[in-house]
Design a protein around this nucleic acid. Structure first.
Lengths: 228, 228
DNA sequence: AGGTTAACGATAGTAATACAATCATTTTCC
DNA sequence: GGAAAATGATTGTATTACTATCGTTAACCT
């Protein structure tokens, strides 16, 4: 069985829908690779055009600017993650198991069964970790937010929050804890790889150490007996 | 009594030490304001030159590029924060009180007694929250790290980690918890202001709610009774 | 089969950015 | 009072971030 999943994106993210043409898909695929290789700051549409084998002007027909492309990619990623989460927690009734699934997903311990035609997943995860936050750390967050560009992130966050509430009804900070979990997962992985002194994962061979840390965080907070 | 504290910066951060001249101080002061007003992406040395009343070339005599200026500013901030922490926890023997001081400091609840001649502190805090992470989220982290540009961040992190260990000897993740605390404090404040659906602080008048959340996080994790 | 439309490639052009270089003038310091 | 350093002023260049135009090709419609 081969399943191809199609994610419908907010139309404000693009000028021309990249899913509807080969050129568009090439822009996404090579865009991801190039942002990974060069870092977002050094990445330009001119360079991308050469790699894709098209012209700068053609890329501008799809995306207003490179920041929009980054937001497109990260948003796509959040939607995909939420889908993965839904899929992986389906038919699980134990909320603890669901939480474990969330953590696994956020630390990319899980192989999934969906081929992503034109997208290199492990590279995608790396740019989300290193560049993802830049999609909302701008002067135009509020505007972008009004255009619902960050809805997929919020949806994912909300879904995780619901799981926390299921585990611990009445917990007062489910959304903050969800966003903290997502951000912390990424940041601690980044620190582990690039600024290890900001972590305690120094020479641990075991890449599960981040998982252990995050589990400790989540269950400590949800199980806390003290009055909050 | 009037005290002026002077922070000695890593010489690799600048070409000419901005603390040694009026022009240099003007670059820092207006730089902070301008990054706040325009956001880092829209900020340029040309615009800064006009505001400072000098030329682009003169600014390039102080800083290699705008990213270095950002790193200079954030690094200055981390050093200053560590000093504040040292000052505020001096003579406190109760480690819980120290932790509370850390949280207060990171959420900027504390007025301090040090005038910062040429620096607007509340604006500085805002750009650290919104732009600070960009100083290390680059392709040249590793290089910058080798030049010790992030040492002040690590030092702060380490000092906080020591406090955690004092409170809970043998705690296995003191550094990760410290970096998580710092990052989470900033990110939750940012989310509260710009993407509130990612938090539970929606319509809370009380700005202390972030403090409550962070306290809950730290004490839950340090007090967790489960075997970690 | 013929005509319309949309997509793309190719080319050109502009304003702004991110610098580097030079040289004259002013300020600081010994 | 003279040397050295800092600054101002100006110029220049490569690159970036776009916008616009036009001819050709591919798709699709009846």
């Amino acid at each position: 069985m081969e399943v191809q999943l199609q994610i419908k994106m907010n139309a404000k993210l693009y000028l021309r829908d990249p899913e509807t043409s080969e050129l568009g898909k090439g822009i996404i695929r090579h865009g991801i690779e190039m942002i990974y290789e060069l870092g977002f700051e050094e990445f330009t549409f001119k360079k991308l055009a050469v790699k894709v084998g098209t012209t700068e002007a053609s890329i501008y027909r799809y995306f207003e600017n490179k920041h929009r492309l980054l937001t497109y990619i990260t948003t796509w990623f959040w939607t995909w993650l939420e889908y993965q989460l839904m899929f992986n927690t389906n038919n699980i009734s134990d909320s603890k198991q669901k939480i474990d699934a969330v953590i696994k997903l956020l630390t990319y311990q899980e192989k999934d069964e969906f081929a992503l035609e034109h997208i290199n997943k492990s590279v995608l995860q790396k740019i989300i970790i290193a560049e993802g936050d830049k999609s909302y750390l701008t002067k135009h967050v509020t505007e972008d937010n009004k255009s619902m560009l960050f809805k997929p992130y919020k949806d994912l966050c909300h879904r995780i929050a619901q799981i926390f509430l299921e585990y611990k009804p009445g917990y007062p900070y489910p959304h903050s804890l969800a966003s903290t979990l997502i951000e912390t997962a990424h940041r601690q992985i980044y620190f582990k790889d690039h600024l290890p002194r900001l972590t305690d994962f120094g020479n641990a061979k075991d890449s599960n150490i981040v998982v252990s840390y995050l589990s400790h965080m989540i269950y400590s907070m949800l199980d806390a007996t003290k009055k909050i």
